[in-house]
Amino acid sequence: MKGLIKGVVILGVVAFLIAYFGTPILTVNNLVAAAKAGDEAGLERMVDFPAFRDSVKDELTARLMAEANADPDVRSSGLGGLGMMLAPMLVSGAVDALVTAPTIAAMVRTADTPDPEDVATARTPEPESEDKDIRQSYGYRDLNTFVLGLTDPDRPDETLKLLLKRQGVFGWKLSGIDLPEKAA
C-alpha cells in the first residue's frame, strides 16, 4: 500500500513538472497555428497587448536613438536633437495604432520585425502571398519567460524573439519582443 501511494505521488510530481515546463510549447504551437490561420480572436486571447506594445515601443525607441546617435549629422544638428526628443512620442502613437492581432500574425508568419520607418509613417505590414518556411527555436530565459525565436532562412542572422510570460501556474501570454541586431 505504501508503495502504491509513493508511486502515485511520484507520478503526480512528474505530471506536474511536465505540465509546468511543457505548457509554453503548447502555447507557442497554438500561437503559430492561430497566426497562420488568421484567427484574430485566438491571437487576442494569447497576447497581453499592453505589455507587448510597451515592449515594442521600448525596442523601437532604443533602435531609433541608437541610429540617430550613430549619425554625426543628427548629433550635431539642433533639429536632430529635437527629433530625438520627439521620436518616442511618434513611436508610441504609431505602435498603439498598429500593434494588432493581424500585425502579430504577420510577424509570426514572416519573422519580419517592425521597422522604425514603417512605424513612424504608420504603414501596416503587407500580407504575404504564401507562407515562408520560418525556422522556430524555443527556450527558457528564466522560469517565467519563454522565448520563441523566429528566423527567415533568407535572413539567418536576424532572429525575431517573441517573449511569452507566465500567467499563473500553467498559463502563458505573448508579452514582449526582442528585435534582432540590425545588420550593418
Rank of each mutant, 00 (worst) to 15 (best):
Leu98Met: 15
Thr159Cys: 04
Ile104Arg: 00
Pro102Trp: 00
Leu150Met: 02
Val147Cys: 01
Arg166Ile: 05
Ala87Leu: 09
Lys165Asp: 09
Leu150Ser: 04
Asp133Gln: 15
Arg109Tyr: 01
Val147Pro: 03
Thr124His: 12
Phe170Cys: 03
Leu150Asn: 04
Leu86Phe: 12
Thr100Asp: 08
Leu148Asn: 05
Ala120Lys: 11
Leu160Ser: 06
Ser92Gln: 08
Thr145Gln: 09
Arg141Ser: 12
Asp118Gln: 14
Val169Lys: 06
Arg155Ser: 07
Gln167Pro: 03
Ser137Thr: 15
Ala105Tyr: 02
Tyr140Arg: 08
Ala87Pro: 00
Gly93His: 01
Thr124Ser: 15
Ala106Phe: 04
Ile104Val: 14
Glu130Asp: 14
Asp133Glu: 15
Leu164Val: 04
Asn144Phe: 10
Ala111Arg: 00
Val99Phe: 06
Phe170Pro: 02
Val169Ser: 05
Asp96Phe: 07
Pro114Gln: 12
Ala105Arg: 01
Ala120Phe: 14
Leu163Val: 12
Glu126Phe: 13
Leu150Glu: 00
Pro116Ile: 06
Glu158Met: 09
Thr100Pro: 09
Val119Asn: 06
Leu162His: 03
Arg123Gln: 15
Asn144Asp: 13
Leu163Gly: 02
Thr113Tyr: 04
Pro116Tyr: 05
Lys132Val: 10
Pro88Ser: 03
Thr159Gln: 09
Phe170Ser: 06
Asp152Gln: 01
Asp152Phe: 04
Ala97Ser: 13
Arg109Ile: 02
